[in-house]
């Protein structure tokens, strides 16, 4: 058994009503703790993709995967925790900034690769896309300026390179069963 650590799953599901509910209900009833969850459509009709980040040790991660497969509408589960990935979240952060502090906040944004997307006499809204820990660092630096509100998506993740891995899931052939 390995230590509990942050795990990232890419979960491909049928795009049908109630599927998000089924996945979320599974995590809840098995006491698997979700850190973040993102759902979106994909380039393939009828297939949605979820990115779930949660805490789990090695055995639990395998059980999460196995339990997800028990859901009839789940097509493919990829535990990409240890694969090289690009992982991104998006945050919008509204900071109280008067004229005097504007330049400083803009400099901070530049350092983090964030960009201002809205400006008023008293506020600036900053958009940041990046790994979640980078966003957290930006938040820490902006905090002294007084953050008025913020919103952040869950992480979305994709493995790097490898045509093979990318092709392993999109068209999931239903396997014929002996049980029928």
């Amino acid at each position: 058994m390995t230590e509990a650590a942050s795990r990232t799953f890419a979960i491909f599901v049928e795009d049908k009503p109630g599927v998000l509910n089924r996945v979320a209900s599974l995590f809840r009833r098995r006491s698997f703790n979700i850190h973040s969850l993102n759902v979106s459509t994909t380039h393939e009709p009828g297939v949605s993709r979820m990115t779930v980040v949660c805490e789990a040790d090695g055995d639990t991660a395998k059980r999460i995967e196995a339990n997800l497969y028990k859901l009839v509408n789940v097509l493919w589960v990829d535990d990409i925790t240890h694969a090289p990935t690009v992982e991104r979240a998006l945050a919008l952060i509204k900071v109280r900034v008067g004229r005097d502090a504007r330049a400083e906040v803009l400099r901070v944004c530049e350092v983090f690769g964030a960009r201002p997307v809205d400006l008023s006499l008293e506020t600036m809204t900053v958009e940041m896309t990046g790994p979640e820990d980078h966003i957290q660092s930006l938040v820490d630096v902006l905090r002294p300026f007084e953050i008025l509100e913020m919103v952040q998506t869950g992480a979305v993740a994709m493995t790097r390179g490898s045509v093979e891995r990318a092709q392993s899931h999109p068209t999931i052939p239903a396997r014929r069963t002996h049980a029928a």
Binding site: L75, A174, T177
Partner: peptide
């Protein structure tokens, strides 16, 4: 015909 569900692999 045998049923094929894309996300259900009981075997």
């Amino acid at each position: 015909a045998p049923i094929e569900l894309p996300g259900y692999r009981p075997d």
